[in-house]
Amino acid sequence: MKARLMIAGALAALMLPATAQAHRQWMMPSSTTLSGTESWITVDAAVSNDLFYFEHVPMRTDGIVVTQPDGSTGKIENAATGKYRSTFDVHLTQPGTYRIGSATTNVMGSYMLNGKQERLPRGTTKDKLASVIPAGATDVQVAEASNRNEIFVTLGAPSTGIFKPTGSGIELVPVTHPNDLVSGEAATFQFLLDGKPAAGLKVTVIPGGIRYRDALGQMDLVADQDGKVAITWPQPGMYWLNASVGGGREGGEGGGPGGPGAPGAGAPGAAPAPRPARPAGPPQRRAAYVSTLEVLAP
């Protein structure tokens, strides 16, 4: 029991830095639409309940990559991590749309060996899976989790060069450009899961400013068979967008494979549920996507 709880904790820790249940990870750019020949933005990055208030833990900045409009890699500058949030700057020197974000893929899981449950070492990758599971291991449980958290900012006219899909995890492909959002207009985004249209993907959109209102104002959307969702923004402001498969997180399925109650999730205080024998098959797929989108007034 204790081991299982530890594993559950370890699994949560292995996801996006603290994508624990009920906490939302986000990056908040100072601006998404910029003019001039060059400009700076600053970004706050945190994990919190309320959007967009830093009140829980900072988001780590070490995995954040800047992709410039021409596809080259930029850099974050002046990064600092405080008690509740991290902050960093990005110098925009090219016209077009920048991506600022992190994308990780981890394999996590556990197995039984000599009556003891062991978990896979941190940083295990899919191709190394065979080498980290010792001979004689039974009851192997593996999940592959791809997490992406990204924001977009545009200097001058929006461009689409950075949206070339990588084929890994959940990705956003613009039908409407994410830096061309106006309240009262419908925006359409296409989501891909591992490079294919994420049909049926559940997408959650929550307006910022939660602290000063009673209703969450959450919009729950389901991607059509092309992986597309249309969102009509009720008012200008910053919106948090989240989509996930597996893992039972906000925006994804409640329960189901990899969800609460799935192998390895053991509820505190509950008796260990009889574990169905699972062969070491292909890993369960878990993927999460987070973005912060700015919607301007018309």
């Binding site: 639409t33 910029l34 003019s35 001039g36 020949t37 400009s39 545009t154 001058g156 006219a157 929006p158 061309d180 106006v182 301007l296 007034a297 018309p298």
Partner: peptide
């Protein structure tokens, strides 16, 4: 001075940004 052109936001979207 071009830093604030985007604040003329309908024009910026319609024409200025290009």
């Amino acid at each position: 001075g071009t830093k604030w052109l985007r604040d003329v936001r309908q024009w910026w979207r319609a024409s200025g940004r290009t």
